[in-house]
Design a binder for these strands. Structure first.
Lengths: 259, 259
DNA sequence: CCTCCGCTTCCGTTCAATGGTAGGAATCGT
DNA sequence: ACGATTCCTACCATTGAACGGAAGCGGAGG
């Protein structure tokens, strides 16, 4: 079935190699990498070496493998969410400084919210490590805010395939949550991850009124300024949307600007 | 000379495709991508489609190509500098809050300093966009701090190949700059990028006394608290080095922590 | 000294990769 | 309104790059 007995293309294998690293693990031994990528050791070795020659991977002494600096550089400099993050950062900083709460920015990917940027509460030891984290739509205010703005058809697909692995949320409850979020213009969810917190998120709409992201905060349960909080988020979201429209083709001022 | 007339392997081509995006540009039309990657249009098309199937690239309506969210996610979650950034962030935040200046963290890659993280001065509109930026060793305090701690042989290679394209810095001057930096334990450089600023950086040493990074700040020229500034940086750098040692194998507490 | 384990090199076989040609689809200029 | 142009997509015969088992190498451990 192939040059390879397994029938997958070179591209498939390259992808499996660079996707073989488990979350948060940045270094693997070749043998382990081969196992995870389900490749014969010889083949893994060859691919790794080739990729390393281009700086997409790095081979440290002893043969252990990690992602290459060059890959990181390429991806960060051209990341698909670059424009979004640039537009959002000032507003996120504002919110962080005014409210002193965790602020986050997420996009919808499949049936999950993918967190693209995040600012921690000042003073909290929390790092920005888990940007690039994911949460299912139904357990994140960001996810709900995003899904609630999707076209009917998309929401239909989502609800149709939905089953809560934890068995806590019924499709009906979810449907009404989405309806409520769409109607109110924001989504809130009591501490799914941390039981003592609220998550609150509003959609960020681009110039064509499509929800491209969700802007959210996490606040303690006893926080009662919700009335003030939501408008603040919505204002910021509108600001982000506006800047997104402007910066369509202005990815050209490069300038290393005062390092 | 090949299956491909150009004689390069599939891996080579895949790399060229994802490296084809110019800095800061996140979307390319297929034709342009093919040109930049120096691939026949047909081949580029096939590769792009294959990569897109795995989420490493995305094809938006109309055929324009961008890096995929999945790739971004993979790289950010397993980036080779993850541990370094995690260890450094709290200290960088401290410095930022105390000094209210731009703080940056760089590693040495080739003969350049690659900026891995950066915090902007509060209130400045500056975004964190150009993390992943590069500066030549001889024009950045971070680069000098890093190079000054490299083994003699490495410094030798560097100086041997060095020529300043701008013709402003002679190899001799550079050599003495490095010597001075090594002796003092920090490097400073008057505004190479912004003429009204100083760059000051100290090396971050790991448990084996190897310089794995440089921690730096950018301050206005008239700033005179240098005496206080350097010790602050050095203290932070030592702290980072210590945490780096600890977190060798503790990349396991994942926990989505209060989003 | 021998064994084990993991990384690396070698090399004959084979089918996946290649890319020119041609067919759509959309945009532009007049 | 309608050719001209541009760009993306699909097809398919040719061929050398990818494959991976076998064997070599080197160090850690007993």
């Amino acid at each position: 079935m192939a040059n390879s007995v397994s029938g997958d293309s070179v591209v498939d294998r390259v992808v499996r190699v660079i996707a073989a690293f488990p979350e948060g693990v940045s270094v693997l031994r070749l043998t382990e990498l081969a196992e995870r990528a389900e490749l014969p050791l010889t083949t893994a070795h060859r691919l790794v070496r080739q990729l390393a020659e281009h700086g997409l991977l790095e081979i440290s002494a002893g043969g252990s493998v990690r992602l290459g600096l060059h890959l990181w550089e390429l991806v960060v400099r051209n990341s698909p969410t670059l424009a979004l993050r640039q537009a959002a950062m000032p507003f996120m900083e504002d919110i962080q400084h005014v409210l002193n709460q965790n602020v986050n920015l997420a996009v919808l990917d499949g049936w999950e919210a993918l967190f693209v940027e995040r600012l921690s509460r000042r003073g909290s030891v929390a790092n920005r490590a888990q940007i690039a984290g994911r949460l299912a739509v139904h357990v994140s205010s960001a996810g709900l805010a995003l899904m609630s703005q999707q076209p009917r058809s998309r929401q239909g697909e989502y609800l149709a395939q939905f089953t809560d692995p934890a068995g806590k949320v019924s499709t009906e409850v979810l449907r009404s949550l989405l309806g409520e979020a769409a109607h109110q213009g924001y989504a809130q969810l009591a501490g799914v991850i941390d039981p003592d917190t609220w998550g609150i998120a509003v959609p960020v709409l681009d110039s064509k009124k499509r929800a491209v992201a969700a802007l959210g905060v996490v606040v303690p349960l006893q926080e009662v300024r919700l009335q003030a909080l939501v408008p603040a988020l919505q204002t910021a979201a509108r600001g982000i949307g506006r800047r997104l429209g402007e910066s369509q083709s202005s990815a050209d001022f490069r300038s290393m600007e005062s390092l």
